[in-house]
Amino acid sequence: MLSEGQRIAGQYTVERYLGRGAFAEVYRVRHRFLGRQAMKVFKHVGSRAAAEELLEEAVLLSRIGHPNIVRVFDAGIAETPGGRSAFFTMEYVPAGNLEQYWAARGDRFTRIGEAVDLLIQICDGLAVAHGERPPIVHRDLTPQNVLVGFDDDGRPRVRVSDFGLAKRTDAFTGLASARGTLAFKSPEALRYRKGDSPAGDVWAVGAIAYLLLTDTLPFHDDSSPVAFFGVPRDAPPPSPQIRNPEVDDELARTVLHALEPNPARRAADAAELARLLRGWRNPETRQ
């Protein structure tokens, strides 16, 4: 949609293309005063009202600011070769997403503590959204939607991004309509198509945890029609200890708790899962 060197909204120069999703493309840009940022440009163009509706993600992100949620700087409407497009700019995280970061690290079975630290940060960011009233659910949490950069002291810092499918839950039912990536969707969301909730986001974190600890997804049959309706997910997956003996009993229980098929018996939200993970990381804090 954009080309290198192109000027956008009079303030941004496109440096390079970074990637694309179902609804938007992302570019690295440079603001004339503020330096390097990432710009998300929506593919679907139309009326100004329609373009402004697409910027709801930027509004959500600006409201739930947190060190573990990607920061939004600006939003607007730009003319592209395809017509009018909505865009917003956010912090540029050069290390890439969680999938890329973890693959580059190597020796995965010796870094359980680091995996848990990253998972806690994911939960801390989500907990802010889940703490809204009514809660905001992400609905599409995957390793590709978790950015990993570094603080000044060299420690990795997570930023949860791509809240494009995020939606406030119904104040009475606590649910939002189900969307997102099948491999990281909870059983209730797949079965009923209206099962997204904070507990559904917890299930996605559990799937990410299982992947980080075992290099394997908890369920492999997401392409089958049966799996789409969640039938194979009526029982928990095999313990992560089977695939990685470095995982101890306590951590295995926590991950399987996040992947509990019955949402009523699962951690209710990201704050609860963060507490359990911190209890494993720092045993003296366990209650």
Rank of each mutant, 00 (worst) to 15 (best):
A166K: 00
R159C: 07
F163K: 00
D170F: 07
V137T: 11
L165P: 05
F150S: 15
R139W: 09
R155V: 11
L147F: 06
D170K: 07
F172R: 15
R139C: 05
G149L: 00
P135D: 13
L165W: 11
R168Q: 15
D153G: 14
A171E: 14
R155P: 00
A166I: 11
G154D: 15
R139G: 02
D151M: 09
L141D: 01
D140V: 11
L141M: 10
I136F: 10
G154S: 13
T173Y: 06
P143F: 00
R157K: 14
R168N: 06
G164M: 03
T169Q: 06
R159K: 15
G164N: 09
R133P: 04
P143C: 12
V137D: 04
D162F: 03
R155C: 02
D170R: 03
G131P: 02
A171R: 14
V137L: 09
P156N: 14
P143N: 12
G149D: 11
P156S: 08
Q144V: 04
T142N: 04
V146N: 10
L141F: 08
N145L: 10
V137C: 05
H138T: 06
L141I: 02
R155N: 11
V137A: 11
D162A: 07
T169V: 15
G149F: 04
T173L: 13
N145D: 12
V146L: 00
H130V: 08
L141A: 03
T169S: 07
V137M: 01
H138F: 12
R159H: 07
P156A: 06
H138S: 09
G154F: 05
T169H: 02
G149H: 05
D140K: 06
F172V: 15
P134E: 08
V146P: 01
R139K: 13
V148H: 07
F163Y: 03
V160I: 09
F150G: 14
R133S: 05
Q144W: 05
P135Q: 10
H130E: 12
V160H: 08
F150H: 14
T173K: 03
K167C: 14
V137H: 02
F150Q: 14
P134C: 10
V160E: 10
T142S: 08
V160S: 02
S161V: 09
P156I: 14
V158L: 01
F150A: 13
G154L: 07
A166L: 03
D162L: 02
I136M: 08
G149T: 05
Q144L: 03
F172G: 04
R168M: 10
D170W: 03
D140A: 08
D170C: 11
F172P: 00
G154C: 12
P135I: 01
K167N: 12
V158C: 01
R155H: 10
V137I: 11
Q144C: 00
V137R: 08
V160M: 05
S161D: 09
G149N: 07
E132L: 15
S161K: 07
F172H: 11
G154Y: 11
R155I: 10
I136G: 11
R155S: 14
G131H: 13
T169W: 04
F172S: 13
D162S: 00
E132T: 12
T142H: 06
V148D: 01
N145V: 08
I136S: 05
P143V: 04
I136H: 02
N145S: 13
H130A: 04
P156W: 14
V158I: 15
G149Q: 08
